[in-house]
Amino acid sequence: MRTRADRIRHTLLFEILLITTTVLVLPGVLGVPAHSFGMLSVIMSTLAMLWNYLYNVAFDRMLLRLGRPLAPRPFWLRAAHAITFEIGFAFVSVPLIMYMLDFGFVEAVLLDAGYLVLVPVYAFLFNLAYDTVFPVPQPQAEAM
């Protein structure tokens, strides 16, 4: 099990590297000012972390109210969890993208959809690297 400090380090490194990477690459691709995209990235990252916490607490409470166990979760429930999380976040992210980058609705939805494709790939690669650099501590066998 990872410690609280390790989980905080993981979250901060994940977000900082994601923001840095996107701010270095995407403004040129999208033709938007780097400072506007950087501010958008920081705001969206902060909102995503907050939404992640609130959504997961609400989801777990809903499961408990419905009399369902919190674990194990079947595939269909994990899929529903992920999809409804992203739909909920899109209600905030799409208008924010429209406002901060002066994008139309379709452009904002496409950018948001691009994140839906790229962030899981980034997360997979980040977590592989993180687990290599900061391996999960293995329990020590008790001496006889």
Results as ranks from 00 to 15, higher is better:
1 M>S: 15
1 M>W: 09
1 M>Q: 07
4 R>G: 05
5 A>G: 05
5 A>T: 09
6 D>T: 10
6 D>V: 02
7 R>S: 11
7 R>I: 08
8 I>R: 03
8 I>Y: 02
8 I>A: 12
8 I>M: 06
10 H>C: 04
11 T>R: 03
11 T>D: 03
12 L>P: 05
13 L>F: 10
13 L>N: 08
15 E>D: 04
16 I>S: 05
16 I>Q: 02
17 L>W: 05
17 L>F: 11
17 L>G: 03
18 L>N: 06
18 L>Y: 10
18 L>C: 03
18 L>V: 02
19 I>H: 06
19 I>P: 04
19 I>G: 06
19 I>Y: 06
21 T>E: 01
24 L>W: 07
26 L>R: 05
28 G>L: 01
29 V>M: 07
30 L>S: 02
30 L>K: 01
31 G>D: 09
31 G>R: 02
32 V>S: 03
32 V>Q: 03
34 A>P: 00
35 H>Y: 08
36 S>M: 04
37 F>H: 01
41 S>I: 01
41 S>P: 02
42 V>T: 06
42 V>G: 05
44 M>W: 00
45 S>D: 00
46 T>H: 00
50 L>C: 02
51 W>A: 03
51 W>R: 02
52 N>H: 07
55 Y>K: 01
56 N>F: 06
58 A>Y: 01
60 D>N: 12
62 M>V: 05
62 M>I: 04
62 M>W: 11
63 L>H: 00
64 L>S: 03
65 R>P: 01
67 G>I: 10
68 R>W: 06
68 R>M: 09
68 R>T: 01
69 P>H: 11
71 A>F: 15
72 P>G: 09
75 F>R: 12
75 F>D: 07
78 R>I: 12
81 H>P: 12
84 T>I: 11
85 F>W: 12
87 I>E: 06
87 I>K: 08
87 I>H: 07
87 I>L: 15
89 F>E: 08
89 F>P: 08
90 A>T: 12
92 V>Q: 04
93 S>C: 09
98 M>L: 11
100 M>Q: 13
100 M>R: 10
104 G>V: 12
106 V>P: 08
108 A>P: 14
108 A>E: 14
108 A>H: 13
109 V>Y: 07
109 V>M: 13
110 L>A: 10
112 D>Q: 08
113 A>M: 09
116 L>W: 14
116 L>I: 10
117 V>D: 05
118 L>A: 15
119 V>R: 11
120 P>W: 15
122 Y>N: 06
124 F>D: 08
127 N>G: 14
127 N>Y: 14
127 N>T: 15
128 L>A: 13
128 L>G: 15
131 D>G: 15
132 T>I: 14
132 T>D: 10
135 P>Q: 14
136 V>K: 14
139 P>A: 14
140 Q>E: 15
140 Q>G: 07
142 E>K: 13
144 M>Y: 09
144 M>C: 06
